[in-house]
């Protein structure tokens, strides 16, 4: 058995119920909804993600990469080993200094945005543990409507406070329209 699942019919219903499940002290539990129900994450007591910090550092990496790329390729006569030996090639253009930063800004900006965006999307998926194509909930017939118009609270069997009969009765008392056991796959 993977856990117990309760179905609710409206955001209002799950919002009230989520607060009670949180207060009951469960740790491995979750709400599932077809769209982000406003403030439900805060109601559940979800800690704010550190994704923005990661994205900031990814963006700064892009900035430094853009600067280094342009300074090395067009401004410095250095050798560097990047899987192969590569050499910088100072190019003099209309007598301007070899390391003139204004002309580097567009490429630096683009690389900053590129790395930050890829990290925002990739980091979101990684922190969420996605892609995960097989999951006990996805094998449940009733859960199919979670991506349509139904709202679910699940309590996992690995939770220290989990007791099947108690959980079922508790979720029923919160106004669930259906309570069901989710089998492990």
């Amino acid at each position: 058995m993977w856990g117990v699942m309760a179905e609710f019919e409206s955001p209002a219903a799950i919002y009230g119920a989520a607060g009670k499940v949180r207060d009951a002290g469960y740790r491995f539990w979750d709400c599932h909804a077809p769209f982000p129900v406003h403030n439900l994450d805060r109601q559940m007591g979800v800690k704010r993600t550190i994704l923005p910090v990661v994205v900031f550092f990814a963006g700064m990496t892009g900035t430094m990469l853009g600067l280094a790329l342009q300074a090395f390729t067009n401004g410095l006569d250095w050798d560097a080993w990047l899987l192969v030996w590569v050499q910088g090639y100072p190019i003099l253009i209309s007598g301007k200094p070899l390391l003139s930063y204004p002309s580097m800004i567009p490429v630096i900006f683009e690389l900053t945005v590129l790395l930050a965006s890829l990290t925002a999307a990739g980091g979101m998926l990684a922190f969420n543990g996605l892609p995960r194509l097989s999951h006990p909930l996805l094998a449940n017939k009733r859960f199919l409507r979670c991506s349509d118009d139904r709202f679910f609270i699940t309590i996992e069997a690995r939770d220290p406070k989990f007791m099947r009969s108690k959980c079922e009765a508790f979720l029923k008392s919160l106004g669930a329209t259906a309570v069901e056991v989710v089998e492990e796959i």
């Binding site: 994450d41 965006s117 925002a120 999307a121 979101m124 969420n128 996605l130 892609p131």
Partner: peptide, 20 residues
């Protein structure tokens, strides 16, 4: 990608969407 509408996922999703 196995999206299952988890509110914990939606939380990070909304942050990522705002950042994007």
């Amino acid at each position: 990608l196995g999206w299952r509408g988890s509110m914990r996922h939606w939380h990070r999703y909304e942050v990522a969407y705002l950042l994007l």
